[in-house]
């Protein structure tokens, strides 16, 4: 089985977000970059398939050379090889277009994207990629098993979950649940040493245009201070929620 895991390079979840160049670009100074958490849940499941059924795991990122450290980390976690499409993408459509080109060169049985990246939160790459390749997509994927050609997956829906049967090739949007936080693999020294020897290939991008572009960023307005209510004065809180905030 051939698995492709699509990896985004995103600011650490604890990052303070700032912008530069008159609020037209994200300030990367002093920001620690990580594997997008949803992608890491997907990668961990892929490595599980690699160990159980001998799947080959390829990771791919669409980004510039600054994304290579997280690809090396994916290799240290257990991926067999890495690809980097050498392009700083403008939007999710551009990423999906580049990934579709990769998937047409080599055939993958299972393609894993994260549910969404935690920077732009577009949540579009998986669905677009699958539609470009004319294969099915399962969003918000919280469980996946493969027995010969039979694939069973679960999708988280509002207020519950849906169980589906599917066929390969398939694209899934990974999220927590596919594996748990405790299942995440922290690379050991052997993994890190091996990762240095594993192939990381830089692929030139296909000619393609984005579907949208970000014009400017903005931070939310500063919030006023909290209005504290005495713990004995519950009626006071209810009154504020009812008559001032008007939310009851």
């Amino acid at each position: 089985m051939n698995i492709l895991v699509c990896i985004s390079n995103v600011p650490d979840t604890t990052s303070k977000i700032n912008f530069k160049e008159e609020n037209t670009a994200f300030e990367t100074q002093g920001v620690q970059f990580i594997i997008n958490p949803n992608d890491e849940f997907g990668l961990t499941r892929a490595v599980w398939f690699q160990q159980k059924v001998g799947a080959k795991v390829t990771v791919v990122n669409v980004g510039d050379a600054s994304c290579e450290p997280i690809l090396r980390k994916c290799l240290a976690i257990g991926a067999d090889q890495a690809l980097r499409v050498d392009l700083q993408p403008k939007d999710g459509f551009e990423v999906a277009t580049q990934l579709a080109a990769i998937c047409k060169k080599e055939s993958y049985d299972l393609i894993i994207t994260g549910r969404e990246s935690i920077d732009y939160n577009g949540g579009m790459v998986g669905g677009m990629l699958a539609t470009l390749l004319e294969i099915p997509y399962v969003a918000n994927c919280i469980q996946m098993d493969i027995a010969s050609d039979e694939v069973s997956v679960q999708r988280e829906i509002d207020g519950g979950k849906e169980s589906l049967s599917a066929t390969l090739p398939l694209v899934i949007g990974a999220q927590k649940g596919l594996v748990e936080e405790k299942d995440l693999i922290i690379p050991n020294m052997r993994g890190i040493m091996q990762a240095r020897q594993k192939p990381l290939e830089v692929v030139p991008p296909e000619a393609a245009a984005p579907a949208s572009k970000v014009q400017a960023f903005e931070k939310p307005a500063e919030k006023g201070p909290v209005k504290l209510v005495d713990a004995e004065d519950i009626d006071g809180l209810i009154d504020l929620l009812e008559n001032e905030a008007k939310v009851l």
């Binding site: 600011p11 977000i17 912008f19 939007d91 935690i118 920077d119 732009y120 939160n121 949208s212 572009k213 970000v214 014009q215 400017a216 960023f217 903005e218 931070k219 939310p220």
Partner: peptide, 10 residues
């Protein structure tokens, strides 16, 4: 964007 830490005009 940035999980509600910011907005952008797209």
């Amino acid at each position: 964007c940035f999980t509600n830490k910011a907005f952008n005009e797209t």
